Amino acid sequence: MKRKALQAALPYTLPIFIGFLFIGLSYGFLMTSKGFSVFYPIAMSIVIYAGAMQFVAVSLLLSTFSPLYALLLTLMVNARHLFYGIAMLEKYGGAGWKKWYLIFGMCDETFSINCTVEPPAGVDTDWFRFFVTGLNHLYWVASTALGAFLGAYVHFDTTGIEFVMTALFVVLFLGQWERREARRSAVTGLGCALLALVIFGSSQFIIPAMILITWSLLWKKKFYIPKEEQP
C-alpha cells in the first residue's frame, strides 16, 4: 500500500524538485556566505520549512533582535497558509497520525497537489498525500544541504544571491499580469506596497504593506461580489 502510494506521488513531485533545487541551492549559499555554519540552513529547512520566510530570516538573524517584528513579519509573509489550512480541514481530518505532518509540511506546492489531485484507483489517499508532502520536504532539505556544503567549500562572490526570491515573486507577478482577470489584484498589491514604501520608508514598509494589501483585497471582494452571491 505504501509503495503504491509512493510510486503514485513521485511523478507529481519531480517538477517541484527542479524548482526547489535552484532556490534551495541559493538559500544554502546565502546562509554560508553570511558566516553561518552549514548546519544552520539544514536545520532551518527541516524545522521551519518556509522558503520565502527562511530567506527573510537571514536578515532577521543578522539584525537587532526584535521578537515582535519577527512575529508580525512571519505572520504576514505566511498568512496565506491560514487559508490553505481551512481548505484542507476536511481532506486531512481522517488521516490519523499523518495529519500532524501533513499540516506541518503544507507548502504552496504541496497544497496545490494535495488539494487538486486524486490518486489512482487502489492507492490510499492519505498515504499519497503523506508522500507528496514528504518528498517535497526532502527535496527542499536536500537542496539546501547541497547549497550549504558547496557554499562552505566553493568560494565566489555571492553578491545579489538573495535576489533569487525577489526574482521568483516578480515571475509570479508577471504570470498574474498576463491573466487579465488577475490584473486588479496585481495592481492592488503593487500600489499598496508603493504607498507603504513612501510613508514608512524602505526599512519598515513590509508589514504595513501586507496589512494594507489584505484589507484592500477583502474590501474589494465584498465590493465586487454581487449582493445575491454574498454570504
Score class of each variant (00 low, 15 high):
T159G: 14
G85Y: 04
V123Q: 06
L138I: 13
A148V: 00
K91G: 08
F163N: 12
G151A: 05
Y84I: 04
V164Q: 12
G96K: 08
F131S: 02
A152D: 12
K98R: 15
A87L: 06
V117P: 10
R129M: 15
N114K: 00
T125I: 11
N136P: 06
R80N: 03
M106F: 01
M106V: 01
V132Q: 06
L135F: 10
H137N: 13
K91Q: 13
G147Q: 02
I103S: 10
G96T: 13
D124H: 11
A148G: 07
G134L: 15
D126V: 14
F130I: 01
E118T: 15
C115G: 12
L89Q: 10
C115A: 13
D126R: 04
G122F: 05
P120H: 09
F104I: 05
T158N: 10
G134S: 13
L75E: 05
Y92R: 05
M165Y: 09
A142T: 09
D124T: 12
H137C: 06
F104H: 07
Y101P: 03
A145W: 02
M165C: 07
E118P: 00
R80E: 03
L89Y: 12
M106E: 09
G151F: 03
G160N: 09
Y92G: 02
V117H: 03
I113L: 08
I103M: 13
L89T: 14
A142S: 13
F156T: 07
E162P: 15
T110Q: 15
R80P: 07
F156C: 08
F149H: 11
D126G: 12
C107Y: 03
C115V: 00
L73S: 11
A79L: 15
D157V: 10
V117K: 07
V123W: 05
M165T: 14
F83N: 03
D126S: 15
M165L: 15
N78H: 09
L138P: 00
K98E: 01
V154G: 00
W127M: 13
V154E: 02
Y84C: 06
